[in-house]
Design a binder for these strands. Sequence first.
DNA 1: GCAAACTTCTGGTCTATACCAATCGATCGG
DNA 2: CCGATCGATTGGTATAGACCAGAAGTTTGC
Lengths: 236, 236
Amino acid sequence: MSDAYYLQLTEQLRTLIDQNAAQWEGKLPAERSLAERFATTRVTLRQALSQLEGEGLIHRSNRRGWFISPARLVYDPTRDAGFNDYVRAQGRQPRTAVLKLEARVHPPAARALGLPDDQPFHHIRRRRYVDDRAVLVESLWVVPERAPELLEIYAGQSLWGLLRERWGHFLANRSIRMVSEALSPMDAEELLVAPGTAGLNINRAILDDQQRPIEYDEEHWLHDSLCISVELSGQQ
Amino acid sequence: MSDAYYLQLTEQLRTLIDQNAAQWEGKLPAERSLAERFATTRVTLRQALSQLEGEGLIHRSNRRGWFISPARLVYDPTRDAGFNDYVRAQGRQPRTAVLKLEARVHPPAARALGLPDDQPFHHIRRRRYVDDRAVLVESLWVVPERAPELLEIYAGQSLWGLLRERWGHFLANRSIRMVSEALSPMDAEELLVAPGTAGLNINRAILDDQQRPIEYDEEHWLHDSLCISVELSGQQ
DNA sequence: GCAAACTTCTGGTCTATACCAATCGATCGG
DNA sequence: CCGATCGATTGGTATAGACCAGAAGTTTGC
């Protein structure tokens, strides 16, 4: 049952965090000091912390310590809204950093869009933040014919907006796939978290309003920063 | 970066599992024997196994050992199809065990359906299997007026089918919410996994074709048994 | 006044070991 | 032949300590 010590510890930590969240300013005390306070080992203490991490209450910034997690971002994958839009709509601050711009082939993207494997793409890799916490990294694979000078002009702005304003593409999701994952060492490093941290992988194939393939999107989210919510039509 | 020994171990285990999956019949050797084979401690070995668990390659049956995970079930939450339907549609075998039948109030369900907090419900708790692996437990909260004798007659069959055939309700999802979670001790026990195992919590509010509230559904899935896939309309 | 160098602290990883309780397989008894 | 009993095995949990590299804070030097 729940007589394991680390599970009791989990509960004690939960209330401790509740009470001291304000004065700690979001960052938990050092593991060694917490372990001492509860008269246990770091190993056991970490087991309890990992439990709370799994619940999404706290998270780790790699080698930097444990932090209290903010509320999850609510995301409706069936709505065709960009990241910036729905982050701001929830009263929070979006930010984007561009990590890479290059031309490359990428068979998975090609397949998802119904194009030949050797189809070249414009590849944009970027990291996105909510209130200055990095919550996801993503790779975008854009069909070059639809946005020729993209690699030269792209600098972190909204891609949906850019495609609409500059090239007149009105985008719509075609298919979305979501799976839980353990973040790869690379993804983890880019998100400043420990390798193997739990994540959510979201892939989207995106067409324009004439059903032409425009881009393929591979997102890797921190598992605790997202709440998927779908409101279905029919109503009212 | 990936010079941590447990990450190398993870890779070695990955190929080892690939090669021996058949002869092991899905169950990995004992931790002690694996630890010995790789000349390391059980602690480190378990860290590597946990990594693969996070990826969804293997899973634990509580105190029973490590098992190779079957392919994920593909699930489209926007489709109004029952569990049995889409499991069979993927060539797999669904099964349901009823854990509890009772009458109770449940404010979260009431709120999601727009009913008063003291609204009583018929509560059905059941565990569902795919190919004899328990993959989820769920609690159903059904509005009694819509299915009066439900608690007396329910015995594990398809609830959607029952509501349609006996009471003439044609169900449709209204809202769906998905969050990653750590399974509660109770959920974990009912799924025969260790407490704190990663899970996916899916809640659905379900109405009939006249927009009358029918039921509220709280599902707790093993994180590795599900692949959410949404195909959006508009096309073809 | 500011950047560089250094020190301390801390999280990430690992070893070695131990105990318990649940499981599983084998043995035993009817 | 089958169910119950018993013992070995195994996973879950926990202790005690250790080392390293990165982060953070402090001091130094220009």
